[in-house]
């Protein structure tokens, strides 16, 4: 696993690049650990309070530990009318968690998202940003089985 110090150092020269650094940190850790946030604040010369304010503003950034695979259910209107609620219920039942939670084995985190721009085949689920199209409740077990 790449060290967060190195990750941050590699983005340091981009003006205002703290969000880029957060993306890079999340790629390794799936969230922004406290120490990494503090280091980012230092590197980009902003207060820790501000670095924290930035990290908590964006839905795709998290300062809390998350699972290896982040499942996001799109609930925007086009996916909503295509049955997103049913898919979400099935996801919750299969994973045994509610939205916002992580499975006890640390594998899956379930989140809601607004439109991910793949509305040609609704409803859409993304797993680590990879879209899965036209998801029906009965497809859920098969989809989850692919992620080990």
């Amino acid at each position: 696993m790449a060290n967060y110090m190195d990750i941050i150092a590699s983005c340091k020269d981009k003006p205002g690049g703290i969000i880029e650094a957060y993306h890079a940190i999340q790629k390794e850790y799936n969230y922004i650990p406290q120490e990494a946030l503090k280091e980012a604040a230092r590197a980009f010369k902003v207060s820790e309070a501000q670095a924290f304010g930035v990290a908590t503003f964006y839905s795709y950034l998290s300062v809390e530990k998350r699972g290896k695979y982040i499942i996001r259910m799109c609930e925007s209107a086009p996916c909503h009318v295509a049955g997103a609620d049913e898919v979400l219920k099935t996801l919750e039942a299969h994973l045994g968690i509610k939205v916002g939670e992580t499975t006890s084995d640390g594998k899956f985190t379930l989140e809601l998202t607004e439109c991910v721009g793949q509305c040609q085949a609704t409803p859409v689920v993304t797993i680590n940003s990879e879209p899965i199209f036209g998801v029906k409740p009965e497809m859920v077990p098969e989809i989850l089985a692919k992620f080990k």
């Binding site: 969000i19 880029e20 993306h23 964006y58 795709y60 950034l61 998202t113 607004e114």
Partner: peptide
């Protein structure tokens, strides 16, 4: 240069 957002409409 390309910059990436992080989930904020």
């Amino acid at each position: 240069e390309v910059r990436m957002g992080a989930g904020a409409y």
